[in-house]
């Protein structure tokens, strides 16, 4: 039973990291219909920013909690700046181009950012400090859930809550939903659509960066290529849930995370990806628009 619960926690932890990344894919797709292939690299840049920021902050001798919070802020802000810039340079000029052009531009951005970080940081794996404190009260349960798992879950839950409040209740959130549903009408009501799109990239990038920090601290090492596989997994989760749908991205992420955890736990970690992608194929056969996605006709 303990083993089962351990796997559940492990699945939820994976799932919440996927969710933090998948939200960026799904929000950008929802608003401009683009699959932002460079999003995994934003996550990777978030992890590297966290590495640099935490190294500096640790040298300054700040307490662990302060280091964690400041590092998360630094990673979120820096990655958001990258996300904003990528949109401005690589996607906005192609807003009215044929659909394939921004997609190719996105792949180009992804390759560019990987190589840029590789040149700056080499291709070796670099050790990442454990930024998440060990909670004494969890010691009796150490067999089923660790401090890192719990922190990842709590931070993700908090961010999801904040995002939900933003989207549902703020003026900006309403403008984001309106723009996603009918861009021309949003323009006709005075929404600065370019700014709404920028905000979407900024929010998605910041979330991914926090995900990057959490998982890097959990695994303990990073290099320039970690964004690739994490990006593909999170994208899979977004498609699984119904790309364009925010609740869908979260649900898809947890379904994917749990599937992988159980596949690894009961079968073998070699088959983790096989199970993950078989699940994707199965769900798309029976629900082509994903778990919570709308019938494909809507997005033109």
């Amino acid at each position: 039973m303990d083993y089962f619960i351990e796997l559940v926690f492990s699945g939820l932890t994976r799932g919440s990291i996927y969710a933090l990344i998948a939200l960026g894919y799904t929000m950008v797709y929802g608003i401009i219909g683009l699959i932002n292939f460079a999003h995994g690299e934003i996550y990777m840049i978030g992890a590297f920013t966290a590495l640099i920021a935490s190294t500096v902050l640790n040298i300054l001798g700040l307490p662990l909690y302060a280091v964690l919070i400041l590092t998360a802020l630094a990673a979120a802000v820096w990655a958001a700046a990258y996300g904003y810039t990528v949109e401005r340079l690589a996607y906005r000029p192609l807003r009215n181009a044929p659909r394939l052009s921004p997609l190719i531009s996105a792949i180009g951005m992804s390759i560019f950012l990987q190589n840029y970080v590789m040149l700056a940081q080499t291709s070796d794996f670099q050790p990442f400090p454990a930024l998440i404190p060990e909670f004494a009260f969890l010691e009796p349960f150490a067999a089923v859930v660790g401090s890192t798992d719990l922190t990842i879950l709590a931070v993700s839950a908090l961010l999801l809550l904040l995002l939900t409040l933003l989207i549902k209740y703020t003026r900006t959130g309403k403008a984001m939903r309106a723009t996603a549903q009918d861009q021309k009408m949003a323009l006709l009501l005075g929404v600065n659509v370019d700014r709404v799109i920028s905000i979407t990239f900024v929010v998605g990038s910041a979330l991914a960066a926090v995900g990057g920090l959490l998982i890097a601290s959990h695994i303990g090492q990073i290099n320039f290529s970690i964004g690739f596989i994490a990006g593909i997994k999170a994208f899979t989760a977004a498609v699984l849930g119904g790309i364009g749908s925010i609740p869908g991205a979260v649900l898809g992420s947890f379904v994917l995370g749990l599937t992988e955890a159980f596949a690894t736990g009961y079968v073998s970690s070699d088959y983790e990806d096989v199970f993950a992608f078989s699940l994707l194929v199965l769900i798309l056969i029976f629900r082509p628009a994903g778990l919570l996605g709308k019938a494909a006709v809507e997005k033109v």
Binding site: R171, K174, A175, R177, A178, A186, L189, G190, V191
Partner: peptide
Amino acid sequence: ENLDMGAFL
């Protein structure tokens, strides 16, 4: 919310 969007500015 549709009405709110009318008053966006």
